[in-house]
Amino acid sequence: MSKRILVVLSEYGYWGEELVGPIEAFDARGYRTTFMTPHGKRAQALPPSLDSEYIDPPLGRAVTSRDMARRARALDDSSRLDNPLSLAEMIPERPYYSALNHLRELESYHSNLAAAAQELLGGFDALVIVGGSGPIVDLANNERLHELILAFARADKPILAECYGVAALAFARDWDARASLLRGKHVTGHPKEYDYKDGTGFVGVDFNMGPPPYPLEYILRDATGPDGAFHGNVGKEVSVVVDFPFITARSTPDSVTAGEMLIEVLENGLRRYGW
């Protein structure tokens, strides 16, 4: 029976290659992929990720080949991304503590969350969170996504996160303990050296944020704690780390390898790679 992969995309823009890399690896293995966005809105690629002449400021070179730009545009223009699942419709929202009938609402929330998680876990073998600048806006601090991540982790099912999508792993944590799921884990992600100083943009809004609103490396170093580690691998072309159940990818060039590593986890029981 073919594997089923749930792929979460931002509604504010994903990086083309960071979707193409894993998806092409999954397609080659006959996996079935289903897409999900925060509110069921169709995801779109960030324009620079479709431009082979775009120069990445920190790296000082183009990061998208002509062939990859063509493949990313073909996927973005296809019907595959139409009609994604809605995270907001499938995962309930935790009530405010100021709710008039908080106890009853909290009981209902936990009941509905357990049912939703069971349904999703029954339908998918792995979770993928695609990167780009968009996740900064609607994935990093999305509590519904946090609950989805927690459910997959508790079920011992692998979770792949790329680039700024890794932030959602750092912020996913048990409501009572408040410790990050990444505590004690080894991960990679966008290092400080590769962060923009200007030009962080999004799909659907005319807004140049300048630099990213937070240095992901610092968040990941704090989240992994003294018994884990962040691996930026600055100066190395590829940075992918597997510390089961997590597969983390630093940025664009790591996407193909990240997809291949998830396949190794699913088919060959890989538990550690890249550190």
Rank of each mutant, 00 (worst) to 15 (best):
P213Q: 11
T37Q: 09
D27G: 05
R154I: 10
G13T: 03
G16R: 08
N83T: 13
L87K: 08
G40C: 10
Y164R: 04
P253A: 05
A151G: 09
E193L: 07
P48M: 11
K197Q: 04
R178F: 05
A74W: 02
P226W: 08
G134A: 05
A229H: 08
N268Y: 03
H102M: 12
G225L: 03
Y164C: 01
F124K: 11
V166Y: 00
S133G: 03
P191N: 02
D125N: 10
P95T: 13
G235Q: 09
L169E: 07
V238L: 13
D76T: 13
P22V: 10
F35T: 05
S133P: 00
Y109W: 12
I129N: 00
R94N: 09
L150I: 13
F202P: 02
A153Q: 14
G259E: 06
L75Y: 09
Y97K: 11
R144T: 00
F35E: 02
Y54R: 04
Y96A: 15
G60A: 13
E107V: 12
A28L: 13
P253H: 07
S10E: 09
W275Q: 03
I219A: 06
D222C: 11
E89H: 08
Y12Q: 10
L106R: 12
T188C: 02
K3I: 12
G269L: 05
R272S: 09
